[in-house]
């Protein structure tokens, strides 16, 4: 290699001298005024620092022993003890209003947290006669969905409502109870038994409802409905 190593005491190589500018002072001013290359001090490591490190190392050992799940591939929760009952899942809240509110997190995507819906597409739930009327109708809608136009208080909405039959009876009852009592709404709670009854009655159905079908369906009360079926259908 043509690179010559320059050490202190070496004379500058020829190549450099050729390139050198005539005014060395200005040329190297920043370089000349700088301090010598850094050196190391020899302050000892403080004892408290070493102690601190031992404490940390001890904590780490303890933490690994407690939280590594035996290095097993199937232990995800560090507090889980292999073989124990899967008890760490939070039970669903007992209060239907709380469960209903949690379930409503899903409904909000369309009906909004205000319950006012999206004009022209997703109908409002606040003040809606469908929500506040006979609970059998909203239960049917939740179980199988709804397609085609629906008219609420004179305004038409054409969005599609998917089916939520994967929700349990309790969950459907809870979310309807919540919706019937949220915002300015106030209507009596919905009984999970009603949901179970309607689920059984309409189990065969594969299509989403249309509004005219729902009006017809509301005329036949569910077999073991606990409440008097007094349909108060929206004017379509």
């Amino acid at each position: 290699m043509s690179d010559r190593i320059i050490g202190p005491g070496d004379s500058p190589p020829q190549k450099y001298r050729v390139e050198a500018e005539p005014d060395p002072a200005a040329l190297v001013a920043p370089t000349m005024r700088e301090m010598s290359e850094p050196t190391d001090g020899i302050a000892p490591t403080p004892v408290w620092l070493l102690l601190f490190f031992f404490v940390l190392a001890g904590w780490s050992g303890y933490y690994i022993a407690r939280n590594a799940g035996g290095f097993r591939a199937d232990i995800y929760n560090e507090h889980y003890i292999a073989g124990a009952a899967p008890s760490l899942e939070k039970p669903a809240p007992a209060d239907p209003l709380v469960l209903g509110r949690q379930t409503f997190n899903v409904c909000m995507q369309c009906h909004q947290d205000t319950g006012k819906g999206i004009p022209g597409t997703y109908p409002p739930l606040e003040g809606s006669p469908v929500v506040l009327g006979d609970p059998a109708t909203p239960v049917r809608i939740l179980l199988h969905g709804l397609q085609g136009d629906i008219t609420i208080e004179g305004a038409t909405y054409n969005g599609q409502m998917p089916s939520w039959d994967r929700f349990s009876d309790e969950q459907i009852a809870a979310v309807l109870t919540y919706v019937r009592q949220a915002w300015t709404n106030s209507a009596h709670p919905v009984d999970p038994a009603l949901v179970a009854a309607i689920r059984k009655q309409t189990g065969e159905r594969a299509q989403p409802w249309t509004w005219p079908e729902l009006v017809i369906a509301s005329k036949t009360p569910p077999p073991s409905a606990t409440e008097p079926a007094e349909p108060k259908p929206a004017k379509p």
Partner: peptide
């Protein structure tokens, strides 16, 4: 979605970083 031990090692490594950081800081 990773087994507890992988996460735990990451946490222990992070806490042990107190060692180099404190020395460098001093």
């Amino acid at each position: 979605p990773l087994p507890a031990w992988i996460i735990t090692l990451g946490i222990v490594g992070s806490i042990m970083m107190f060692v180099p950081v404190t020395t460098v800081a001093i």
